[in-house]
């Protein structure tokens, strides 16, 4: 491992140790924050007893569904917008300001349209993630070097071959960024929707523990969610770095 990684580990470990010390010494009241070791122990207990397995699986399934539909839909919409510049020019300010709109406000409407259950939550996750994918697809398609497209024309490549051999590989880094953001936003959307509005899932479990003053359980669940999201993101980050490195070498 490189020096930077070690320093990073040391920083994170130091922060955790400081937190632990502050909690144990009573500097931070136990009603505000429980020590990280207690969070970890409670989380392990929760996982072992299996009482949150159903919530966990449910959240993961919803995130996965939101992610897959958002990546496919966002890519499709991005391609369409790229092919129609006037439409794109008009739609862009809306896309750029999209994330300031509280999508959750539409949840009651979504329940009526899609029924109770997981579908409205998946739709919120999708709505959250799809725009990041659209914007990055547009970015990626913009960055295709003109020379390559011209070369393709000179070589008389068909539209399908051009798309598969030139457009897709050139846009790939941006598409990857979009995918990465879509993962993050699917998590954010699904968990936030569960948190505010739903009656099941990890987000709900946290809010339930909070409302019942069950601080230890709440922090354990928070730790679980955070670890889960960071693990997924780190996996994507490492994968991306590897892809980029391979590209530079080639």
């Amino acid at each position: 491992m490189s020096r930077v990684t070690w320093v990073r580990l040391a920083v994170v470990a130091g922060a955790l140790a400081a937190l632990e010390a502050a909690c144990r010494s009573g500097l931070i009241s136990p009603h505000t924050l429980v020590p990280p070791s207690v969070m970890l122990a409670t989380a392990a207990k929760l996982l072992q007893s299996g009482e949150i397995t159903a919530d966990l699986l449910r959240t993961l399934r919803n995130v996965l569904a939101a992610f897959v539909t958002a990546v496919a839909g966002g890519f499709f919409i991005g391609v369409v917008l790229h092919a129609a510049p006037p439409l794109r020019r008009v739609a862009y300010p809306f896309l750029a300001s999209y994330y300031a709109i509280p999508v959750f406000a539409l949840y009651p409407a979504l329940i009526v349209v899609f029924g109770m259950g997981d579908l409205p939550i998946i739709v919120i996750g999708f709505l959250f993630a799809v725009v990041a994918m659209i914007i990055n697809t547009l970015d990626g398609l913009d960055r295709i070097p003109r020379v390559l497209l011209k070369t393709a024309r000179v070589m008389r490549m068909g539209p399908v071959a051009t798309a598969l051999r030139i457009k897709l590989p050139s846009a790939a880094p941006h598409l990857f960024t979009g995918t990465k953001l879509a993962v993050a936003y699917s998590f954010i959307g699904v968990i936030a929707a569960e948190f505010i509005l739903s009656g099941a899932g990890l987000g709900y479990a946290i809010s339930y523990a909070y409302n019942n003053f069950n601080t230890a359980r709440m922090y354990a669940l928070m730790l679980l969610v955070i670890t889960l999201v960071i693990a997924v993101n780190l996996a994507f980050y490492t994968w991306e770095q590897r892809l980029l490195r391979r590209r530079n070498l080639r």
């Binding site: 993962v183 987000g203 922090y219």
Partner: peptide, 24 residues
Amino acid sequence: AVAEPILVSLYSLPKITLYPLILL
């Protein structure tokens, strides 16, 4: 270099889970 991945993870966190902490 040390902070970047930490910040990226922070960015992608569902921050709403931290809301009870902020309230407390």
